[in-house]
Design a protein around this nucleic acid. Sequence first.
DNA 1: AAAAAATAATTAAACGTTTGTTTAATTCAA
DNA 2: TTGAATTAAACAAACGTTTAATTATTTTTT
Lengths: 213, 213
Amino acid sequence: MHFECNKMITDKKQHIIEHAMKLFAEKGFEATSIRDLAKAADVNIAMVNYYFGSKEKLIETILEQKASYMKDRIEELEANKTISEIDKVHVLIEDYVERLLSHPNFHKVLYKELMANNRQDLHEFLTQTLARNAKNFAAIIEKGIKQKVFNKVDAMLTVASIIGTINQVMLSKNMCNKLLEKPTEHEPYQDNVFRKRLANHLKQMMDSHLLIN
Amino acid sequence: MHFECNKMITDKKQHIIEHAMKLFAEKGFEATSIRDLAKAADVNIAMVNYYFGSKEKLIETILEQKASYMKDRIEELEANKTISEIDKVHVLIEDYVERLLSHPNFHKVLYKELMANNRQDLHEFLTQTLARNAKNFAAIIEKGIKQKVFNKVDAMLTVASIIGTINQVMLSKNMCNKLLEKPTEHEPYQDNVFRKRLANHLKQMMDSHLLIN
DNA sequence: AAAAAATAATTAAACGTTTGTTTAATTCAA
DNA sequence: TTGAATTAAACAAACGTTTAATTATTTTTT
């Protein structure tokens, strides 16, 4: 079993990371104590500092590990010349809906940290990453405008509308259920009917917003 | 001066509330200590508990005091029969942009608390308040659909797009500046050019999204 | 109107907890 | 036997809150 040593270390780190993400999402970073986390992950309270150095380093590790997960997809699409710009927008809408709604805990931690603006270095890294994604997305829309297949819209704010819509429904499961007239127990983010509905709304809205006529 | 006693008490409470909102917005509720707040507001550390009972009661007071500030405007508009539905949407867009961007600190505290989901009672109150506003807004859109002046859109998610767009740009001043290619010092929320740009984008998007043809 | 009593506001100090982190000893695997 | 993993205990610091004493301000009484 010795050849699996590194893997097992990683597994344990990952084990802690996953419980941390869940707790940070539920209660917030500051409100989650290392003792809470140690109990939830069933490890000794010293292990977090042993593996990550500090509580701060832990959340930095989590966010840096995952924050750039949309990057490659967008850059690949932007370069693709066989797909029309409106289809690229559709693909990105489906991607964003799928990936954001699939990781609601990570989403919450990320946006809490974005709003927090403590930990200057981390905040700079996160805004940098998200801003670059948004700009690449906007570049696709601007290409469509230059090709005269899109209306002359505000590309940057159009991207903000797409991502902002998804973020809005992910703000609070409770509120989302209230808006959709669903019972409190309902899990909207894992509901494929809702995911389709959200993606369809965005595609429909972008079609009328972007396409000429 | 004795006849101003009640007013002065209220003034002092308000004095604390304003500094609290600033700090909670900047650093988050849990990360802001009563000692921080006392120093910022230049009062004794016992005064927060004296006036508000506890730190929790303080944030509850703050949010309950301000959370319903959009309610009356929407309900008044909804009942108005002299304004067309699309004009109502335009008015609400301008209102939301104006009011949300004018209170970025309150906005941050509110949305942090919405995402946090600690303090069950408060969370319930906030989701209730915001959901009712969103539903009233959606009712206006649904009226337009019934009158056959609007396309058959998803009214609830359309409202989410409007509010979500504004929230998106308010997530982080730093990121907002990055997206708009402005210097770090720029204050986008107080910039009237940006407010106009944001409102125009939303009105333009809603026109093409909602209006038939 | 002045003095006295009562209430409210304010303070510094201390309270008991809880926090993140470290230590030193121990267990485990190579 | 060596080095990493794990543990329980202890650390100082910071937390929200309370206390008890003091100062201001109202109210009541004279």
